[in-house]
Protein backbone atom coordinates (compact mmCIF):
# COMPACT_ATOMS: atom_id res chain seq x y z
CA UNK A 1 0.00 0.00 0.00
CA UNK A 2 1.36 3.37 -0.99
CA UNK A 3 0.01 6.89 -0.76
CA UNK A 4 -1.21 7.04 -4.38
CA UNK A 5 -3.10 3.81 -4.00
CA UNK A 6 -4.64 4.91 -0.69
CA UNK A 7 -5.69 8.30 -2.09
CA UNK A 8 -7.08 6.52 -5.15
CA UNK A 9 -9.20 4.21 -3.05
CA UNK A 10 -10.38 7.08 -0.85
CA UNK A 11 -11.31 9.00 -3.97
CA UNK A 12 -13.29 5.98 -5.16
CA UNK A 13 -15.06 5.80 -1.80
CA UNK A 14 -15.77 9.53 -1.95
CA UNK A 15 -17.26 9.22 -5.44
CA UNK A 16 -19.78 6.68 -4.20
CA UNK A 17 -20.74 8.80 -1.19
CA UNK A 18 -21.15 11.82 -3.48
CA UNK A 19 -23.39 9.84 -5.82
CA UNK A 20 -25.61 8.51 -3.01
CA UNK A 21 -25.73 12.00 -1.50
CA UNK A 22 -26.78 13.48 -4.85
CA UNK A 23 -29.57 10.94 -5.32
CA UNK A 24 -30.87 11.35 -1.78
CA UNK A 25 -30.71 15.12 -1.44
CA UNK A 26 -32.17 15.87 -4.87
CA UNK A 27 -34.45 12.84 -4.49
CA UNK A 28 -33.61 12.09 -8.09
CA UNK A 29 -31.25 10.07 -10.21
CA UNK A 30 -31.57 12.46 -13.12
CA UNK A 31 -28.38 12.62 -15.14
CA UNK A 32 -27.06 9.28 -13.85
CA UNK A 33 -26.72 6.38 -16.25
CA UNK A 34 -28.36 3.24 -14.91
CA UNK A 35 -26.37 1.22 -17.40
CA UNK A 36 -23.04 2.46 -16.09
CA UNK A 37 -24.13 1.69 -12.53
CA UNK A 38 -25.27 -1.80 -13.56
CA UNK A 39 -21.90 -2.37 -15.23
CA UNK A 40 -20.13 -1.44 -11.99
CA UNK A 41 -22.12 -4.06 -10.09
CA UNK A 42 -21.06 -6.60 -12.72
CA UNK A 43 -17.44 -5.47 -12.41
CA UNK A 44 -17.38 -5.73 -8.61
CA UNK A 45 -19.12 -9.08 -8.42
CA UNK A 46 -16.88 -10.60 -11.10
CA UNK A 47 -13.68 -9.27 -9.54
CA UNK A 48 -14.44 -9.72 -5.85
CA UNK A 49 -15.53 -13.33 -6.20
CA UNK A 50 -12.02 -13.82 -4.82
CA UNK A 51 -13.43 -12.92 -1.40
CA UNK A 52 -14.16 -16.64 -1.24
CA UNK A 53 -10.65 -17.89 -1.91
CA UNK A 54 -8.05 -15.14 -1.57
CA UNK A 55 -7.37 -13.35 1.70
CA UNK A 56 -5.43 -10.12 1.31
CA UNK A 57 -6.13 -7.90 4.30
CA UNK A 58 -8.89 -6.56 6.49
CA UNK A 59 -8.73 -3.29 4.55
CA UNK A 60 -9.13 -5.14 1.26
CA UNK A 61 -11.95 -7.29 2.62
CA UNK A 62 -14.06 -4.40 3.90
CA UNK A 63 -13.48 -2.29 0.80
CA UNK A 64 -14.67 -5.12 -1.43
CA UNK A 65 -17.78 -5.67 0.67
CA UNK A 66 -18.44 -1.93 0.61
CA UNK A 67 -18.08 -1.61 -3.17
CA UNK A 68 -20.39 -4.54 -3.87
CA UNK A 69 -22.99 -3.43 -1.31
CA UNK A 70 -22.99 0.25 -2.26
CA UNK A 71 -23.21 -0.42 -5.99
CA UNK A 72 -26.17 -2.76 -5.47
CA UNK A 73 -27.76 -0.14 -3.22
CA UNK A 74 -27.38 2.50 -5.95
CA UNK A 75 -29.10 0.19 -8.43
CA UNK A 76 -31.89 -0.29 -5.93
CA UNK A 77 -32.28 3.49 -5.50
CA UNK A 78 -32.42 3.97 -9.25
CA UNK A 79 -34.64 1.02 -10.08
CA UNK A 80 -37.15 1.24 -7.23
CA UNK A 81 -36.91 4.17 -4.84
CA UNK A 82 -36.44 6.95 -7.42
CA UNK A 83 -37.51 5.07 -10.51
CA UNK A 84 -39.74 7.85 -11.95
CA UNK A 85 -36.76 10.22 -12.02
CA UNK A 86 -34.76 8.02 -14.34
CA UNK A 87 -35.28 8.63 -18.04
CA UNK A 88 -34.30 5.52 -20.03
CA UNK A 89 -34.78 7.38 -23.32
CA UNK A 90 -31.52 9.29 -22.84
CA UNK A 91 -29.63 6.32 -21.38
CA UNK A 92 -29.42 4.42 -24.63
CA UNK A 93 -25.83 3.30 -24.99
CA UNK A 94 -25.71 -0.31 -26.13
CA UNK A 95 -23.96 -2.12 -23.27
CA UNK A 96 -23.60 -5.26 -25.42
CA UNK A 97 -20.89 -3.36 -27.30
CA UNK A 98 -18.94 -3.15 -24.05
CA UNK A 99 -19.72 -6.49 -22.42
CA UNK A 100 -19.18 -8.51 -25.62
CA UNK A 101 -15.65 -7.29 -26.38
CA UNK A 102 -14.73 -7.49 -22.66
CA UNK A 103 -15.73 -11.18 -22.65
CA UNK A 104 -13.82 -11.92 -25.87
CA UNK A 105 -10.70 -10.00 -24.82
CA UNK A 106 -10.63 -11.67 -21.41
CA UNK A 107 -10.76 -15.09 -23.09
CA UNK A 108 -7.80 -14.17 -25.29
CA UNK A 109 -5.62 -11.95 -23.14
CA UNK A 110 -5.40 -13.34 -19.62
CA UNK A 111 -2.70 -14.60 -17.27
CA UNK A 112 -4.17 -18.08 -16.91
CA UNK A 113 -7.05 -19.84 -18.61
CA UNK A 114 -9.03 -20.50 -15.45
CA UNK A 115 -12.57 -19.52 -14.60
CA UNK A 116 -11.91 -17.08 -11.76
CA UNK A 117 -8.86 -15.68 -13.51
CA UNK A 118 -10.92 -14.95 -16.62
CA UNK A 119 -13.63 -13.37 -14.48
CA UNK A 120 -10.98 -11.12 -12.93
CA UNK A 121 -9.64 -10.17 -16.36
CA UNK A 122 -13.16 -9.58 -17.67
CA UNK A 123 -13.85 -7.25 -14.74
CA UNK A 124 -10.70 -5.25 -15.49
CA UNK A 125 -11.60 -4.80 -19.17
CA UNK A 126 -15.22 -4.03 -18.41
CA UNK A 127 -14.35 -1.46 -15.75
CA UNK A 128 -12.14 0.32 -18.27
CA UNK A 129 -15.16 1.17 -20.41
CA UNK A 130 -18.02 1.04 -17.90
CA UNK A 131 -18.17 4.84 -17.68
CA UNK A 132 -18.98 5.20 -21.39
CA UNK A 133 -22.81 5.04 -21.10
CA UNK A 134 -22.53 7.81 -18.47
CA UNK A 135 -20.24 9.97 -20.60
CA UNK A 136 -22.44 9.28 -23.63
CA UNK A 137 -25.46 10.51 -21.67
CA UNK A 138 -23.57 13.64 -20.63
CA UNK A 139 -22.62 14.26 -24.24
CA UNK A 140 -26.23 13.86 -25.33
CA UNK A 141 -27.75 16.20 -22.77
CA UNK A 142 -24.79 18.57 -23.01
CA UNK A 143 -24.99 19.57 -19.35
CA UNK A 144 -24.81 18.14 -15.85
CA UNK A 145 -25.67 19.08 -12.30
CA UNK A 146 -22.55 20.24 -10.48
CA UNK A 147 -22.81 17.44 -7.93
CA UNK A 148 -22.84 14.87 -10.73
CA UNK A 149 -19.64 16.34 -12.12
CA UNK A 150 -18.02 16.07 -8.66
CA UNK A 151 -18.99 12.39 -8.66
CA UNK A 152 -17.36 11.87 -12.05
CA UNK A 153 -14.27 13.85 -11.08
CA UNK A 154 -13.75 11.72 -7.95
CA UNK A 155 -14.23 8.55 -9.97
CA UNK A 156 -11.75 9.75 -12.60
CA UNK A 157 -9.27 10.80 -9.92
CA UNK A 158 -9.40 7.30 -8.44
CA UNK A 159 -8.30 5.86 -11.77
CA UNK A 160 -5.73 8.55 -12.42
CA UNK A 161 -4.15 7.96 -8.98
CA UNK A 162 -3.68 4.29 -9.71
CA UNK A 163 -1.16 5.22 -12.42
CA UNK A 164 1.51 6.71 -10.12
CA UNK A 165 0.71 3.79 -7.79
CA UNK A 166 1.82 1.34 -10.51
CA UNK A 167 4.94 3.33 -11.26
CA UNK A 168 5.77 3.35 -7.56
CA UNK A 169 5.13 -0.38 -7.24
CA UNK A 170 7.31 -1.12 -10.24
CA UNK A 171 10.28 0.50 -8.54
CA UNK A 172 9.68 -0.54 -4.94
CA UNK A 173 8.04 -3.98 -5.15
CA UNK A 174 8.87 -5.17 -8.65
CA UNK A 175 5.13 -5.60 -9.27
CA UNK A 176 3.96 -5.12 -12.84
CA UNK A 177 0.46 -6.06 -13.92
CA UNK A 178 0.24 -5.34 -17.67
CA UNK A 179 -3.48 -6.15 -17.94
CA UNK A 180 -4.42 -3.79 -15.11
CA UNK A 181 -2.03 -1.11 -16.37
CA UNK A 182 -3.14 -1.09 -20.02
CA UNK A 183 -6.84 -1.19 -19.07
CA UNK A 184 -6.25 1.49 -16.43
CA UNK A 185 -4.55 3.80 -18.91
CA UNK A 186 -7.45 3.40 -21.34
CA UNK A 187 -9.93 4.03 -18.53
CA UNK A 188 -8.16 7.18 -17.39
CA UNK A 189 -7.91 8.37 -20.99
CA UNK A 190 -11.68 8.30 -21.32
CA UNK A 191 -11.92 10.99 -18.64
CA UNK A 192 -9.60 13.49 -20.30
CA UNK A 193 -12.31 15.44 -22.13
CA UNK A 194 -14.45 15.47 -19.04
CA UNK A 195 -11.56 16.67 -16.87
CA UNK A 196 -10.84 19.48 -19.30
CA UNK A 197 -14.37 20.86 -18.96
CA UNK A 198 -14.42 20.16 -15.21
CA UNK A 199 -11.25 22.14 -14.56
CA UNK A 200 -11.98 24.99 -16.94
CA UNK A 201 -15.66 25.41 -16.03
CA UNK A 202 -16.94 23.70 -12.89
CA UNK A 203 -13.96 24.55 -10.71
CA UNK A 204 -14.20 28.18 -11.92
CA UNK A 205 -17.74 28.26 -10.56
CA UNK A 206 -19.54 27.81 -13.85
CA UNK A 207 -22.10 25.24 -14.81
CA UNK A 208 -20.98 22.11 -16.65
CA UNK A 209 -22.09 22.76 -20.19
CA UNK A 210 -20.72 21.39 -23.40
CA UNK A 211 -20.44 23.64 -26.44
CA UNK A 212 -23.43 23.05 -28.69
Amino acid sequence: MNLFRLLGDLSHLASIFILIHKIQTTRSCRGISFQTQALYVTVFVARYIDLFFRWISLYNFFMKIFFIASSVYILYLMKYRYRPTHDPSIDTFKVEYLVGPAVVLSLIFNYKFEFTEILWTFSIYLEAVAILPQLFMLQRTGEAETITTHYLAALGAYRALYIPNWIYRYFTEDVVDPIAIVAGLVQTGLYLDFFYVYFTKVLQGQKFELPA
Binding site: R54, I56, S57, K64, N165, W166
Partner: peptide, 10 residues
Protein backbone atom coordinates in the same frame (compact mmCIF):
# COMPACT_ATOMS: atom_id res chain seq x y z
CA UNK B 1 1.35 -17.00 -9.01
CA UNK B 2 -0.33 -13.79 -7.90
CA UNK B 3 2.74 -12.28 -6.27
CA UNK B 4 3.90 -10.35 -9.30
CA UNK B 5 0.46 -8.99 -10.21
CA UNK B 6 -1.77 -6.35 -8.77
CA UNK B 7 -4.50 -8.66 -7.46
CA UNK B 8 -4.24 -6.99 -4.08
CA UNK B 9 -5.64 -3.86 -5.71
CA UNK B 10 -9.33 -3.02 -5.74
Amino acid sequence: DDDATGKDEL
